[in-house]
Each structure stands twice: as C-alpha cells, then as structure tokens.
Nucleic acid binder design. Structure first.
Length: 832
RNA sequence: GCCGGGAUGGCGGAAUUGGUAGACGCAAGGGACUUAAAAUCCCUCGCUCUGUAUGGAGCAUGCCGGUUCAAGUCCGGCUCCCGGCACCA
C-alpha cells in the first residue's frame, strides 16, 4: 500500500508549470538571492552526480522562496564540445541535432525530479544568440590585446588528427583513443589571463565563502614566486645567460648552470664546436622523450656543453650543462645550480662530479662534515664575502639589492599560471571571429557581421577540422578593404562559453549586449554556487578572470563572480565512483520510476552531508521510501477518520486502529511537550539548512519529529496534533516537494505549499520545567537525575545525596570539589 | 616530496563554545498480524566480563603521550586512507 508517486508528481509538476510558480521577477523589495548550479554538459542523460547537485540546489531554492527571497534560480546547458562532434562522426548526425536531443532528454529528467528552475531564462551556449556575444567579447578582448595569437606547442593526437586541451590529455595519452599525444607547434589564440595573475591571486582573500581547499588549489595554480633575475656572462662570448632564482642567498654557491634542452641559446653556443653533434643528439632525445615520460622520468641526466659562464659576484668560471630536469616553460629556461643547497642540483653534481660549495651553514653547524644531501633550510652565510655571518634569510634581500646596484640583474616575479590557449581545431564550438586579409592582416569581424555562424554544409569525417574544408565558411571578404580574405577556422574552448553564462542568466534575452549592466548589477554576484570539485581551478579560475576582464571593459562593476561556493562530493557505490565501466551505475530514471523523485531526493540528501562523498545504498533508498509512505498514510488516515482521533497504528491496509483518543480538554502536558518539540524541530531544520547545508541532520530531525508525533504514549489534543503535522509537512516540502503539496491539499489547503511562509520558532516554547542532569563522579557517569529547572547547585547536591545509586560512590569519601554545568552536568570530584 | 582533507558500531552517519559518544536511517535478531509471503507494527541492538527480581563492572571515537574536574573535540608525536600539485629553480 504504497502511494502513487507517479500520478502525484506529474500532477504537481504540471501545476507548478502552469501557474508559473518559479518565474523570477526582476527587482523587488525583497532581498535578492542568486542561486546557481554548474550547468551540465548535455551528454545525453542525467547521472546521479547531477541529481545530487540539483537536489541540493533545489531544496535550498525552495527553502529560500519560503523565506521570502527574490530568487534567481536558472538552468542552462554547456552545449558545445567534443562528444557532440564525436557523435556526429560516428552516427552521421548533425552535432546540433544530437545536442538538442540530449538537452531535451535532460530537461525532461530535470523536470521529473521536480526542480524549480525558471526555464524562461534558459541559456544554451551553442545557440547563435549566445555565442554571438562570445564572439563580441572576443573582439573586445582583441582590441585590448587580451586576445592574441602566437606560435605554441600543443597536444596533438595523431590518431584523431586533432589538437587536444590539456585537460583532455591523461597521463600523456588521448582521452578518447589512448594514443600517446605528440607535441606540435601551431599558431594558436590565447587569452592573456597572466595579465590578471596578481589580482586573481590577491582576491582569493576575498573568497571567504569558498572551501579552503579550492582557494589553496587556485593559489598554487597561479604559483607566484618572488625572485631575482641574474645575467651570467658567457666566457669568451658577448652572450649572457639570464636565470631566475628565488634563492639569491645561494648565489655564491653556484658551481654550474643548466639549460633546458629547448633553450635557443644551447645550439647557438655550441655551434661549430666539436661538441655540436653530441649535444644536438642529446637535446633531440630529451625533447622527444620529455612530454611523454616526464612524469616518470626522475633520474637526472645532462651533458656538458664545453662552455663556461662567469658568476658575476665571484668571477668564478662555471661549467654550462644541458639537463633533462630544467623546464623551458618556467622562468627563463636556464638555471643557476647550487648543489649544496638544492637537492636536484645536489644529485646532478654527485652524478657528474661537479664541486659542491657550501654557502649556508646550519645554526648548530657541524663543520667539515661532507653533505649527504642538500641543506635547504635557513642558516648562517659562509663563503659569501661581505655577506658572511648574517642570517641567510636576511641575505636574500641584501644580495638582491646588491645585484640590482651592480646591475647584474633585477628583482622579478614569476607565475606558474600560463596564458589560456583557447583555440580548438574543432567544428562544434564558437567560431573565432577573425578574418585574415593579405593587405590588412588580422582583422576582427565587426559587430554588425556577428555572429559568425557555424556553416551547415560540412562533413564529419573525423579527419581534421571540418570548418577548414567548408569553402563557403573560409572564403570571405576583408571587412576593411573588401578584398578576398580567409576566415579563421579555429573555434573556442568550451571553457570560454562557461566563463560568463551566469551573467547571461541575469538578462537572457538581451540582444544589444551580452547582458545589461543594470540587471547584472542587481543579481550578481552569485550568492551560492554549487558544483563539483573538478572545476576547482579551470572553470572557477577562468570565470574569475572573465569577470575582471569584463569589469575593465566597463561591462560590469564587481570583482568576483561567486560569493559562496559549495563543492559537493561524488556519488559512489561499492567504493567506486559510479561509472559504466565499473558497472555500478544507478539510473536516475529507474529511481524516479520505482520510488518517485521525492524519495530519490530525500535519500540523496539524507545519506551524507553534501560536501562528502555519498555512498549509494539501495536499502537506504528503501528506508526513505518507507518514511515518505508513513507520513502519507498518517495524513490519509487523519482524513479518513474525519474525527478527532489519532491514527497511530496502521497495522493493516485499511484497518486504522486508533488506540487512544486525543486528549480533551486541550493543552495537556503531552500537547505542551509536542509543541516544544515542534519548535525545536523548526529551529534545528532551519539552522541546519541555512548554516552548513546539513540536509542530512535536518531530515533526521524531521524523522524524529514524526516519531514523536506518532508516539503511542503521548496523548495530545487535536489542534496541537494538526499544527504539528502541518509544520512537519512544510518543513519537509523543500526536500520532497510533490508529496508535500499533495498532503497539504489533502489537509484542506487550497494554496500551494510553495506560497507558505517558512515557520518560525518561539524560543519561549523551547524552555522546559524539568531537566535531566548527568551526575559524574571523578568524570565518570554514575547516574542521571531529573530536577526542576530552577534548582541551585546546592539543591541538586541534596538530590544526589538522597539518590542511593549515586550516593554510594561518594559515601565515606572526601568531596574535593564539584563542577556544575547548569542544566547539564554535575561532576563530583572525590578523593581517598 | 609538498599542500589540503579525513579516520567514530556490521554499514551511512550524529554529537552546541571541551560537558551523558553512537541522534536519525540501514542491516541484523526476536515477536505480533497472516493459511503463507510481502507490507506494516512492537521489542533488542558498540564491545567484553558478570548477574539474573530490577541490574552491575570495565573497555571503547586510527595509534602513543599530554593538558583538564571532564577530551571524538584542545596540544605534541606517529600510522593509514583520499584528493590536488608535482623536477616551478
């Protein structure tokens, strides 16, 4: 006799839609709240991870509405991307068609989950009305020099004949076909995110509503290093080698230098020497091997170039090597090496018998002992001329100043953050709005010609970029001189699309600009963003960059897009993340079919707090289903009886055995107690949702409330019972909205439960006359006594003494002291 | 290696500022109802020892130590697990 979830859920989904209950208005006197979930990639079907993300969001959304916020709660689709194109290649279906079908499926599923989005604000990034503004922003960035083209090494999959994003390269292999990725130099478009490195770093401080780990990840990703750039002249040459170091205090200890294999100076220096061939072979070997096996390659390897550099501080001649452990991408691609104080240099020096010169000694120095490893800590300067004797930490600044004075180098800052490569040699993305003209050069497409539409006359063969084979797309006229010209065929990384979609939601139909400043100013920033941790750096960093860049274009007036961030955990089953290959996937559709959306949502939220991984349990789902049914039956029973009698034992299908009558007259102690618990539950549920999104404990206390409500021994008056039951249903409604709507109606209400105000609790009613005090002897629990709330410590002591069970522990013992925590604990410390 | 996070019954998880560890749910066992099963309802349920009229004692929050009347919570030292970064000079 379980309830008919399907009929009820469809009924109310239809009702909500027809009555436009989730439309978000524009400005209003209410306090605004912008609640956002990371929009999905329309891959075809919702998985449990999605369901979890949306269950969290929707519960919060419904809670906020009932608390009278002016809520913006939109949904959209991150619709460009590789899978659509792959489907096109495989099934000879147009990516747009495929994507639209996927969107429709997912939207249906989302509606079946009862999610309360304002569908009027739907944003689909693959639609021209959206990507037009992607292109428009690109041209603005181009004008400001924030979008630029340069030759760069890219990850190229030889099998799929395409460039891949960094994130699509897993352990050096293509994510689709596991082919080892090659490095290919190509002309690529970049966004100059590095211009904002400092601000992106500094403003992490402002993100107090973000999880600490995400902030740290971004911090490390940006990777700021303060240091010194120093020029080392090459002996018998007019060349200088520029290095970067964060350890100026070790400059006197430099005993060799090492180049990255790709460094342009390497071949220049050895040109014409007898070493040339040997070095060339070594360099080639490293360059080829590097990308692929860099992860495993820990063994230091190098080769002497036969050349020497001069340490500007000491005049020492130091040998120059090429090594496999130096990165071309960071710093200057050449390093000074101090084996005594850097472990990598130490290993290298040991291997190639290079001298090791100590310039910092431990404070508790054991002199003369040969080093067994590099000493990397703070210490006292030695062998460093005028800097001897001072603390190495102080030496960093002093030597830096000295180097600058002598013009050997200057202080610089380096970041690990690189510019954002946005070019993709792919069809299914936003075309980069650029035209190449022989006379005028690189010309952005003027606003009146936007959007540059994706052509339809293309074939998906899986080889190369279909756009470059579409002559109608490629050939065009120069917007400046009208001469025949060539159109850029690269499209944009999909992360570009997702870097400002949340601003588009504020003004989704705008056709003069990406969004109006006014609307964005009202709704932004996003008050609560919810999504997976996998975007900790990528999407969340790009969006921050976009916000700052758009601000500098005058399009908006705030610095950070997301005020609070909640990263939900994964959904796992049998210890693994749900995946097809593991065969542990639980289908969202099946859950809805079998138990209904309300139960599915309830379980997802009940099983664990949102930030933790959720272990799926079929039995656990059943438990929630039972709970929903129990309340349902209670409400049905109340109505069927139509008399003031409780329905406490539903022992058989229709046989309702009302064991005890409601108390009469009202306001018995049972009623008072229930009223207290009702208030307690309101408080607990409200705070749990608001504070930490602890939906699991909120649901637990609703269950407790139910247990109390149906407890046999308590006899309450009808009114109190009804108010309690109604409160329970309201409290449950954000979690399980459909069945609560239905029950609300069954109990005789005409207006949707969504329109109800969230109940308030009365602190006065939480108070009680009696309280249980735990009595401890020497910190050990020895008994409990129920006392009147007003009793003093003295009076409680009397109680204790009259309580035989407890008294026996203190009899004949000396009471050293007592600690009384009012209304909680009395701890008696005894001696002897 | 570095940086985060975590470890509580058979399981998922609760525990205000240090104040009765194990809420709530699942599983398990027993019982009621039933021709039977399912469903539902009731009872038990951290471990060990002990006792049997009711009970009592000890041990328990990864490990070792400390602070405190009192520690899952604070401090010091470990172990293991998960995540991120990884030759960043």
């Amino acid at each position: 006799m379980s309830y008919d979830s399907k009929t009820i859920e469809q009924k109310w989904q239809k009702y909500w839609e027809e009555n436009n209950l989730f439309r978000s208005g524009e400005k209003s006197d209410k306090k605004k709240f912008y609640l956002l979930e990371m929009f999905p990639y329309p891959s075809g079907k919702l998985h449990m991870g999605h369901a979890r993300n949306y269950a969290i969001g929707d519960t919060l959304a419904r809670f906020l509405r009932m608390n009278d916020y002016n809520l913006l709660y939109p949904m959209g689709y991150d619709a460009f991307g590789l899978p659509a194109e792959n489907a096109a290649i495989k099934n000879k279906i147009n990516p747009e068609k495929w994507t639209d079908e996927c969107i429709n499926t997912m939207k249906e599923q989302q509606k079946k989950l009862g999610l309360s989005y304002d569908w009027n604000r739907l944003v689909v990034t693959a639609k021209p009305e959206y990507y037009k503004w992607n292109q428009w922003i690109f041209t603005k960035f181009f004008e400001k020099g924030l979008a630029f083209k340069k030759q760069a090494p890219t990850n190229f999959c030889p099998k799929d004949q395409t460039v891949l994003a960094n994130e699509q390269v897993i352990d050096g292999k293509c994510w689709r076909c596991q082919t080892e990725v090659e490095v290919k130099d190509l002309e690529q478009w970049f966004y100059k995110i590095t211009d904002y490195a400092e601000e992106l770093l500094k403003d992490i401080e402002k993100l107090t509503g973000w999880p600490e780990r995400v902030r740290i990840m971004q911090h490390n990703w940006i990777g700021k290093s303060d240091g010194l750039s120093v020029n080392f002249p090459v002996k018998n040459s007019d060349k200088n080698i520029e290095i970067f170091t964060t350890r100026p205090d070790t400059l006197f200890g430099v005993t060799f230098m090492t180049f990255a294999a790709e460094h342009p100076l390497v071949m220049e220096l050895v040109k014409g020497t007898e070493k040339e061939k040997e070095i060339k072979d070594f360099v080639n070997k490293i360059v080829i091997q590097k990308r692929i096996t860099r992860l495993e390659e820990k063994e230091k390897e190098g080769i002497f170039t036969g050349k020497y550099a001069i340490n500007p501080l000491t005049g020492d001649e130091i040998p120059i090597y090429v090594g496999n452990f130096v990165l071309m991408e960071y710093g200057t691609g050449a390093i000074m090496c101090v084996p005594a104080h850097d472990q990598r240099d130490f290993e290298f020096a040991k291997k190639y018998n290079i001298p090791i010169k100590e310039v910092i000694q431990p404070f508790d120095s054991a002199q003369g002992k040969p080093l067994s490893a590099a000493f990397v800590e703070e210490g006292t300067m030695v062998n460093s001329q005028q800097f001897n004797g001072i603390n190495s930490k102080d030496a960093i600044a002093k030597i830096s100043v000295y180097i600058e004075e002598k013009k050997f180098g200057k202080r610089v800052i380096h970041y690990k953050l690189r510019d954002w490569l946005i070019s993709r040699q792919r069809y299914w993305g936003t075309p980069i709005p650029i035209i190449y003209c022989e006379k005028c050069g690189t010309v952005p497409v003027p606003e009146k010609d936007l959007p540059v539409l994706l052509p339809k006359d293309v074939e998906f063969t899986g080889e190369g970029n279909p756009l470059s084979k579409s002559s109608s797309f490629v050939s065009c006229k120069c917007p400046k001189c009208n001469a025949p010209a060539r159109r850029e065929t690269d499209t944009m990384d999909t992360f570009v699309d997702s870097s400002w979609y949340f601003e588009r939601y504020c003004d989704p139909k705008q056709d003069k600009l990406p969004f109006s400043k006014e609307k964005v100013s009202y709704w932004m920033p996003v008050n609560q963003y919810i999504g997976g941790i996998e975007h900790a750096v990528l999407h969340l960093l790009y969006s921050r960059f976009y916000t700052k860049a758009l601000r500098d274009l005058g399009l908006l007036n705030y610095d950070e897009p997301f005020q609070n961030l909640l990263c939900q955990g994964m959904v796992v089953k049998d210890g693994f993340k749900m995946s097809k290959s593991k065969g542990n996937v639980v289908s969202v559709d099946d859950m809805i079919d079998k138990y209904g959306a309300d139960t599915a949502r309830l379980f997802i939220l009940f099983a664990s707090p949102p930030e933790r991984d959720l272990e799926w349990s079929d039995e656990g789902v059943l438990g929630c289903y039972r709970f929903v049914n129990k309340i349902w039956n209670l409400v049905q029973g109340i109505q069927q009886l139509k008399i003031k009698k409780p329905v406490l034992n539903l022992s058989k299908d229709e046989k309702l055995s009302a064991t005890e009558p409601f108390a009469d007259p009202p306001n018995t102690s049972g009623g008072k107690n229930l009223e207290r618990i009702r208030n307690l539950t309101i408080k607990k549920v409200t705070i749990d949702i608001q504070k930490e999104f602890h939906f699991n404990t909120a649901i637990a206390s609703i269950m407790e409330f139910y247990n109390e409500l149906t407890a046999k021994q308590s006899s309450v008056d009808y009114e109190t019972f009804k108010i309690s039951l109604e409160t329970l249903i309201i409290l449950l409604s954000p979690f399980a909205p459909h069945i609560c709507e239905e029950m609300w109606q069954v109990l005789g209400h005409n207006e949707s439960i969504i329109k109800q105000n969230w109940p308030k609790w009365d602190e006065e009613k939480l108070k009680q006359n009696e309280v249980t005090i735990a009595v401890q002897i020497n910190g050990k629990l020895r008994g409990q006594i129920d006392v009147n709330i007003g009793l003093s410590e003295q009076e409680i002591m009397e109680f204790v003494k009259s309580n035989e069970k407890i008294h026996k522990y203190i009899i004949n013992k000396k009471i050293i002291k007592t600690i009384y925590v009012p209304q909680k604990i009395l701890n008696i410390v005894v001696g002897g």
